[in-house]
Design a protein around this nucleic acid. Sequence first.
RNA 1: GCCGAAGUGGCGGAAUGGCAGACGCCAGAGACUUAAAAUCUCUUGUCCGACAGGGCGUGCGGGUUCGAGUCCCGCCUUCGGCACCA
Length: 809
Amino acid sequence: MTVPEYSPRVIEPKWQRRWSQARAFEASNDSDRPKFFALVEFPYPSGEGLHAGHPRPYTAMDIVARKRRMQGYNVLFPMGWDAFGLPTENYAIKHRVHPRVVTQRNISRFRKQCQSIGFSFDWTREVDTTDPNYYRWTQWIFLQLYKRGLAYKSEMPINYCTSCKVGLANEEVVGGVCERCGGEVVRRIKKQWMLKITAYAQTLLDGLDTVDFLDKIKAQQRNWIGRSEGAGVDFQLLDDTTGEALEPLRVFTTRPDTLFGATYMVVAPEHPLIDDYANRITNLEAVRGYRDASSRKSDFERTEIAKDKTGVPIEGVAAVNPATGKRIPIWASDYVMMGYGTGAIMAVPAHDERDWEFARRFDLPIVEVVAGGDIQSAAYTDVEDGELVNSGFLDGLRVPDAKRKITAWLVERGLGEPKVQYKLRDWVFSRQRYWGEPIPIVDCPRCGLVPLPEDQLPLLLPEADNYLPTDTGESPLAAMTDWVNTTCPCCGGPAKRETDTMPQWAGSSWYFLRYMDPHNDDEFASKKALDYWGMVDWYNGGMEHTTLHLLYSRFWHHFLYDIGAAPYAEPYAKRTSHGMILGANGEKMSKSRGNVVNPDDVIAEFGADTLRMYEMFLGAFDQAIPWSTQGVAGCRRFLDRVWRVQQFAVSGEGIPEKIRAEVHGCVKKVTEDIERMKFNTAIASMMTLVNVIYTEGVATRGTLRTLLALLNPFAPHITEEIWELQGLGEPIYAQPWPKWDPAALVRDEIEIAVQVGGKVRGRVTLPLSLSKDEAERTLPDHPEIQRLASGRPIRKLIYVPGKIVNLVL
RNA sequence: GCCGAAGUGGCGGAAUGGCAGACGCCAGAGACUUAAAAUCUCUUGUCCGACAGGGCGUGCGGGUUCGAGUCCCGCCUUCGGCACCA
């Protein structure tokens, strides 16, 4: 039979229209079928449009979603736009367009591109974080956090990007520079909105045990939360001149067992103790000078020169080691950070590398309290099971026992207690920028900070002519006095609005919930919708969001659960992640490197199905892979071959006996590989099947049905078109997923490799029913085995049924 | 330094402890064609060999096993994350 030409340019738009007209991929909030919520990270609609990296995770989850629909699920597979953010604002400033206009334009382009790739998103549920009907609920959640004390304003040193002119969360500072622009980051003291994510540190840690995330994702989150167990210990302070007792100084230590070895203390340069005891510190100028010098260092400088310890003694105030009763000095040094623990430490130079270096540098005493090391040449830190010495009542104990005993001893005397410490810090939640959600708080001179009543939401961003960032570090909103000046919702008097906006992470912290009920004007989502959709069944996204978006959104969701607004504590049942697509030169795709691949060009030249196939075929899904144009051509070639399978079409619903095992094996492989995200081997198996069909030169309708159904989630347009051309019935999206028959995979006889001493030397054909015992009894007489043994005695014969024969001679 | 991932042909990559290199790319040969492209068929880890066959081969060194790319111990390299976290 002659086959018409394969023309993606024609058939792809055709099927995209059909799906849309048939509402083939719209999810129902009311269905008897089991539900399945598949989620991909919604993109930031940048001015550049989609690049080749975007379709990788989208195609992967599209495959899963399409397969689930065929398996009979009511699938929710939505898409939206995380559209607030700096690049849009910067672009708008540069080109003098309103960010809203830029955003709309970018979204249109992204939507069109996504549609041209044939993703089966439910477009009736599209969300846009910059839409007031959306950010109204972002603001609402913020108010709930505020009302429960989890949003607070605090004057604290923040990371400030000198180039973006904006404060950053710890998570946004990478290697001491701004994650976004690479600009220098310095510390600035500023009043900031903070979210108390630390209150959820343990919850977020425990929650990980209940979900199916890749181990490396769990590990990275655990690391970031950074739980460590130890003790809080109070050290009595004294006026070193008069001997007068002062307030005790609290430290956190993971090694309370080494208390007898604490020969001095160190506080962070910013520690309040310096100002509190200003009149007792006899070298105040030197101490303050040191503090000022370290505050001028950027984070980058601090880490660059990390190893050279600096510091200054705080004279006039001393501490008492509670175990030895000895008076010990207090130093200030920037190797101790204000942001972790209490900003003060007890230094045990014998058993901590940093303390050891510092003690060496400033000639402070080093006292060994755990035996086994050579503390003259290095700190002895490898002490899992060491024995305590020079430690009074702890002498002779092993480290774990000593920890228990000293902690109990401290508790008894009211000098300390067991303590768990986390590295996780509270989330800096304000940005001094225009293009973000306004924070719905009013500052009243009489009533203080007053939350906006919920019925006044959304608090709209004001229209503005000028939204340039200011050099003073104030938000551009601060200059819009008509908007800023308002009345207090509490007393009705004059008051000012909060002028900072929320970070980009706000809108993305709950967007998946909005998909469940996107047009609801009364709630962020109805209880019914939340109950019906429940947890996201499968969420795929980038590793780079593990400690940002993924952690933040888990935090918000736990909070919503705690206030009864969400039915489950954890939002995502399963989380996987994809590798990046690199440029052909193996480097990250970027405009500046000139190695960006635009999916539009690939679609124009090869078609969307080829793009999808290639992105899935190029390698292991979780690994970074460079783009290869030749590889793309190979995938197009495969689809051409699939198209021409039509030339072998013959009637008959059955599958020919000769290729039956092959077909069923392929069904099994593809079905299982999609679940394991082994898309490349699933495709390889379909390629093999097509090769077999070519060799046989026969494709019954039954064979064709199976092949097209399996391939449909990967290459939906071409498969639908062939299906229609061959008159195979209702479109594939409405067809059931193929099943394999295990019986078809079983053969009577099997060819088995024979090893001699572990090396393959020959092969024998054996009945599959042959048992291990029987084989090991009878095989030594087999002529082929005899030949391979070539007269030498067979000491042992191992038969693994269906796998291998191994001779030991 | 700590945590995580990886190291296999010319290339991208396959392989529940059981025939290493599936599938694809590149390259080569043949068929078709006046010719080329496209297509179809075949070859293609490496060394020796005309073939049969054999030697060597999964970053390095050991080990466990009848059998190791896969498991264990010790290293090296690359990539990602964290990093003076007490």
